[in-house]
């Protein structure tokens, strides 16, 4: 098995795929956004609770591949307590990292566990998997839309 593939599915991703965090329905969320990849069928609901402009809780439920599920799981852990501006900042950083526009070494301190997904850049077909939940949370905090897709 080649190194890039091993790196992509490093322990964090395999672990979050097996035991996803914050994988639950939320009671009384402020925002719920459905994220779908029409081509591959990945499908998640992302719930957000806001306290002012701070994300006080974020969770998800649904089904998809290991990359999409682990990404949703790591994202929910990472974003709890962040402001809406920070959500947007990390949405952009994450997108740049998984599309190879940003070297993970240049943002490692900032992105923390999200760095686990840097290997996605080696596999362009998996970018949509990694970013699906992020598109949903981005839609949740920036619009009134109920659906997000990675096509936009």
């Amino acid at each position: 098995m080649n190194e890039e593939f091993q790196d992509l599915y490093r322990e964090i991703i395999l672990d979050h795929n097996k035991s996803p965090r914050n994988c639950r329905t939320m009671e009384n969320p402020d925002r719920v956004v459905q994220g779908k990849n029409p081509l591959c069928g990945d499908n998640y609901k992302v719930y957000v609770k806001l306290d002012g402009d701070t994300v006080s809780d974020v969770s998800f439920e649904g089904s998809g591949c290991a990359i999409s599920k682990a990404s949703a799981s790591v994202m929910t852990e990472f974003l709890k307590g962040k402001s809406i501006d920070e959500v947007e900042k990390f949405f952009n950083l994450f997108h740049e990292m998984v599309t190879g526009k940003l070297d993970v070494d240049d943002c490692f301190d900032e992105v923390g566990k999200l760095a686990a997904f840097a290997g996605v850049a080696e596999f362009p077909v998996r970018v949509k998997c990694a970013t699906l939940a992020w598109h949903a949370v981005h839609t949740a905090v920036t619009s009134e839309e109920a659906e997000a897709s990675t096509e936009s």
């Binding site: 593939f5 599915y9 591959c40 990945d42 290991a66 990359i67 599920k69 596999f123 998997c129």
Partner: peptide, 10 residues
């Protein structure tokens, strides 16, 4: 317990 995309990628 293994999604087809992960299988196919492997």
């Amino acid at each position: 317990d293994v999604h087809p995309h992960d299988v196919s990628h492997f």
